[in-house]
Design a protein around this nucleic acid. Structure first.
Length: 111
DNA sequence: CTGCTGACTGGTA
DNA sequence: GTACCAGCCAGCA
């Protein structure tokens, strides 16, 4: 897989690919992990323009645990999420706050 | 380079 | 609860 595109885009894609199964991340989280905590819109834009099979865009949702847009394939997204053990009620992720993933557990050196 | 668009977010009404 | 507005950022014409 080759990502010959803007650095931000490749970064966003990398972050999304790092999202482990059974977990979800908001556009804002992905944007923040990519370097811009305010590029949430850009992230969504990247998802739409890129939507590569290597990018589990279905794990990327809007804030508040809402599924977001997804071009109207919310039903598909819902099933994909549910297939990973993520229950979705209407347009909202169940236990979203606990399923929310930002990045690999930051180890505490000085606990 | 300029302008518009959009799978977003938070606030106000 | 829904609806509308303003802000922010990257991609594309």
């Amino acid at each position: 897989m080759v990502i010959l595109a803007g650095a931000f885009r490749s970064k966003v894609i990398a972050v999304v690919r790092r999202i482990p199964p059974g977990r979800v991340a908001t556009y804002g989280d992905v944007a923040a992990a990519a370097g811009s905590s305010r590029a949430s819109r850009a992230v969504g834009n990247i998802m739409r323009t890129c939507r590569s099979a290597d990018v589990p865009c279905h794990r990327v949702i809007a804030a508040g645990g809402r599924l977001g847009g997804f071009g109207g394939n919310l039903q598909l997204k819902r099933e994909l999420l549910r297939a990973e053990g993520i229950l979705v009620t209407g347009s909202r992720v169940k236990e979203f706050t606990t399923r929310r993933w930002t990045r690999p557990a930051p180890r505490n050196k000085a606990t």
